[in-house]
Amino acid sequence: MVATSRPATAPSAKGSPIAALDARAVTALSALVAVEHAAVYGAASAGGALAPLGASARDARGLATAAFTAHRQLRDALTALLLDAGAKPPAAQPAYTLPVSPASVGAALTLLAELDDRTAASSYDAVGLVTGKARELIVDALAQAALRAQRARLTADVSPGTAVKALPGRL
């Protein structure tokens, strides 16, 4: 159905119930979309930097590719969620300042881990503000982001004591 100017409260034509999103939920989900736009950009940058680095960068390239796909899927799912609720999801910026320049395999892995740390933190902030399918989406997004960040750090030979977080997304 076409989104109206009011938050959707009518039953969804697709059959899955869309919980109405209050203002705080829209704000938190929009923040997460913005984080995912940046993560898609950053993961693509990491993958591009790793592309010419040969066999020694194979594992890191695989992580970058998986991260790109996962961040794009989460961005699209959240965008659809917001549109279905009658909200206006944020668009991507033309470019982003990366927290780490992926100039080496190690730096690219650090970048991937930091992008996923941000996804985890933003998911933590949003998960309590939504219910139903939206909460399922975000609780799983948090776990998957934490897993990717941990894999990236372990692949970069960070010690398990540092790579494994006690409370992902929270601290």
Binding site: A143, L167, P168, R170
Partner: peptide, 29 residues
């Protein structure tokens, strides 16, 4: 923890979501 997160109020859901992520990461390691 995931089931608890889905059942809990918005106040407790973030902690349970974090615990769920932590145990998944432990299992992976």
């Amino acid at each position: 923890h995931r089931a608890g997160c889905l059942a809990a109020t918005g106040g407790l859901a973030p902690l349970l979501a974090s615990l769920r992520a932590a145990e998944s990461c432990h299992a992976d390691l």
